[in-house]
Each structure stands twice: as structure tokens, then as C-alpha cells.
Design a protein around this nucleic acid. Structure first.
Lengths: 243, 243
DNA sequence: CCGCTTATTATGTCCGGACATATTGACGGC
DNA sequence: GCCGTCAATATGTCCGGACATAATAAGCGG
């Protein structure tokens, strides 16, 4: 049970919505009504509704009121498209061909890209990823960054081209992936990567950054993958959560 | 730029932090000092700091103060999409600015892009999408294709810039989204789109194709969005599904 | 100098008020 | 019945005040 009034009100409303007390698509009582009902100031009610809005449960418009948009908070566990297990299958289907293993220190640009502190030390493992054997060109280039103290990981990675690096980290260092934050952006291919991929320097590419975190939310691996345009599609399926 | 005091203060602080006026790791002036400095109430200053905290620029602790954690926001238009409901909020946050409404017949190229039959008739609604009003450039360009028989949808779309088109389709024609198939690829900006976006023709872009299907899996809407590099990040979170 | 206690400080919670803004509904006129 | 105008309504912005809480700094004693 939360200690603040607004969190208690938010929890109560969340439970009532989940229980169907307020149907999806319907309006909640107004702020003033909730204020009277809970014996709290309008300010406190607004803080509670801010929280519900942040959870995606409600939307709010002037004069209209606060509308229920979902019966439950988005269930992050329910991404039907891409999950950790999907990534395992991707790893098995796209063979890794290690090109370089080096210890690097994050300068400003790398820190920006990875979302880490300048000066952070990483072991970087650079690989080509191959897709269909019938295709002459690799599907992408991946730089994986793990803690510099995992210095002996390199040989294991070379020896297991079909196994996710995070899986190897788990086996050797006991860090288990609980969650991966994935960011997708448009980018261009740097010259060295383009050359390795048989593509033009500066050509358009999909950049996928993935941060691998354990159950304590500590990030222990970051990967940055570039797929040249035309060689890869990231597919996913979004489902409606409430009836 | 922005119409509200707290957004102006937040923008000003964001710029000062980015300019190095407050170093990463250092403390901002206290809420009371900022209140005096900007001639605003502490409440308004707190709203501004809430926004900075939401951007990941600052952290705040009692007695300690407000500490700068990053010099620049992560890509501002980071979008977390795991469900249809997330798309609803995206639609509300990114105003649509309709540029063109036309009836089109899919030639080979369009059929390939949309995954439909050559010759299929569509009503195409072309729009700019805007993010933060403080930014001079739109975040992306969207072409939405709906059945050509929905000819009167156009005016409703123009009149409701914050509402998803699929929601308008549901209201008017009773087709309800059950699932969205999303494909993400690297692409380049065609000349006309680049011009409208204030970008270079041929510049790298993220292309997101979404197919909106009802409960019977019938696709009733397809959208194709282009986001120029540097203006948008598509985020998602992958969870482990099994124990 | 070090450790402990207490006062001070900066953010967090919560109250209340007033006005602005967007939207809907009611009403009147044609 | 339809359209236009205006009033009412519900959220959004912003002011101010008071007290709570967490954390640091200051002061004192050994």
C-alpha cells in the first residue's frame, strides 16, 4: 500500500477500472466529483489522474472529461512480436561472424549512442550477421559492448556463432537477461562498416540499439546493429489489450 | 515558443543545460531560486522541473536539490509502442497536419510497399506529424490508405488532428482495430516528402508500415510513415516470457 | 580530529483559490 | 430540421500557503 494520498487514489481507480467498474470508452467521474468522493483536494486528484494517464489508462480533454482508454496498464510482458526468446531465434537464424574484438573507452559520440557515461570502458565485439545462405551479402553489422572485465568472453563468442552473447554472459558470469530496451532509428553506414557489408558509405541503414538488463535493471550489455536498407525488416505485431 | 510558462521555463533550462551553463553532475539553482529568477510561482517551476525529469535531464532529491544527469535529452520523440493503446497516445501527442487527400490506384511499386494487389483503389490521406512545438521541423510524414469507399472520411480527419484515423474509421464505419502489423525498415526520403519535412532528398529515414486489421484479420487501413534520421526513435521493451 | 546530535535546507505532499481554454449542449432564428 | 451563437462545463494553468520528509551541515563534546 502506498503512503501518499494521490497514489492511493490512483491505485483505487486502477483497480476499479480493471474490475470493470468504469468501462473502457466511458468517462470517469469529474475531478471535482472525485475530489468530493475521496475527500481530497482537486490538486491531489489531478496528481492521481496524472499517474493513470502516464499508465495509458485514461485520456483527458477539457470539457469532455477523463475517458478510460484501457482496462489494464499496458502489459509490457505481452509484447507478442519481439521478446527475448524471439531474439534467441534471431541469433540462431543469423550466424555471427566475428570481425574484431577490442577494448574501447567511450568518447562523447559513443557515450551518446549507447547512453552511457563518457570514459566508460567496454569490451567491444564486432560481427557481421548473415541471413539466408543464398544471399551474397550479410544482413547487418553488430557491435556488442560488455563490461571490460569480461575479457575472456571473446573466445567463447567466436566458438559459438549461433548463440546470443547475452546467453554466453549468463553462462559465464551469471548475469541473466530480464528485459531488453530496444531503440530503432534511421542512420547511415560509416565507411568501414559499409565496406564490410558490401554497401556504399553513407547509405541509409536501420540502427537498432538494444540494452540488456538483469532483474535489478542493471544494464550489462549494449548492442548496436546496422542493417543496410533493403536487407532487413523489423516486424512486430501490436494487439489491442482491452475488449 | 510554447504557450505556457512552465514549458518556457523547461525549454530555457534545457537549452542552458545543453549549452553547458549547468554542468552534468552539478546542481541546478533551487526551486525557490528559480522561482525568483523566472518570476514564477514555485508550483510553475516544479511543473517545469517535472518535464526535465521526464526527459531524463535531471534527478531530484530532498535537501540535495536538482542534479543535472545529462546534457541533452535522449531523442525527443522516443516512442514506446507495445500496444494499440500506445498508438492512441502517440496520435494525441503528435498533431497531424493534413497536406493532401486523394483517391489513388496502387501501381506495382505502391502495391509492393503496402502489400496489396496492383489496381487496388485507396483513399490516401497525406499528413505531416508534429512533435514538440518548440521544434521547427515536423517529426515525420504519413500516408494513410483506407478503402476508397470511405470518401467522406477526409473532412473528419482534418477536423480531428489529435485522433487516430483508425479511431475515426471505427466511429463512422464500425471497423475496430484488433491488431496492427508493423514493419520497420531503413529508407530514403523522396523529393516531395523531403521538401515538406525540411530535409534533403535522399536523406536516410525510418519507414514504418502499419497494417490495421479488425478482429476478422481483415486489413482496413495501411499507413506508411517516414521519419527523417535524427528526429524520431521507435522504442520497445522486450521481456522474458518464460520463468 | 572524530562522532553524535540537532538545526537547517531543499524537495515532496497537499490544501485552496482564481482564471484560461477547449468543448459540448441549449436555445433561438430561419 | 439546420445552423449559428452563447452559456455552461470540465480540464489546464498558475498563484499562494503550510507542513512533511530526507539529507546535509553545523555545532558541541570527548
Amino acid at each position: 500500500m502506498s503512503g501518499t494520498r494521490y497514489a492511493e487514489i490512483a491505485d483505487d481507480l486502477t483497480q476499479q477500472i480493471a474490475a470493470g467498474r468504469f468501462a473502457v470508452g466511458s468517462l470517469l467521474p469529474t475531478e471535482l466529483e472525485l475530489s468530493a468522493r475521496y475527500g481530497a483536494s482537486r490538486h491531489t486528484v489531478r496528481s492521481a489522474l496524472d499517474a493513470l494517464q502516464g499508465l495509458g489508462l485514461v485520456s483527458r480533454r477539457k470539457k469532455v472529461g477523463t475517458r478510460v482508454e484501457a482496462a489494464r496498464p499496458p502489459d509490457r510482458f505481452r509484447q507478442s512480436l519481439t521478446s527475448v526468446e524471439d531474439l534467441v531465434q534471431f541469433g540462431e537464424a543469423h550466424r555471427r561472424d566475428v570481425q574484431d574484438i577490442a577494448e574501447v573507452v567511450a568518447d562523447r559520440a559513443l557515450a551518446d549512442e549507447l547512453g552511457c557515461e563518457v570514459g566508460r570502458r567496454w569490451l567491444r565485439i564486432s560481427s557481421l550477421r548473415w541471413g539466408d545462405a543464398a544471399k551474397p551479402d550479410p544482413v547487418g553489422w553488430t557491435d556488442v559492448y560488455v563490461d571490460a572485465s569480461y575479457a575472456d568472453l571473446g573466445e567463447a563468442v567466436r566458438a559459438s556463432p549461433g548463440v546470443l552473447i547475452s546467453h554466453l554472459v549468463e553462462e559465464r558470469y551469471g548475469r541473466r537477461v530480464a528485459e531488453i530496451q530496444q531503440d530503432v532509428q534511421a542512420a547511415t553506414l560509416p565507411e568501414a562498416v559499409a565496406r564490410a557489408l558490401g554497401a556504399e558509405p553513407g547509405a541509409p541503414a536501420l540502427r537498432i540499439i538494444r540494452r540488456y538488463a538483469d532483474a535489478a535493471r542493471a544494464v550489462f550489455e549494449i548492442s548496436s546493429t546496422l542493417h543496410p536498407a533493403g536487407r532487413f525488416t523489423l516486424s512486430s505485431r501490436l494487439k489491442r489489450q482491452a475488449g
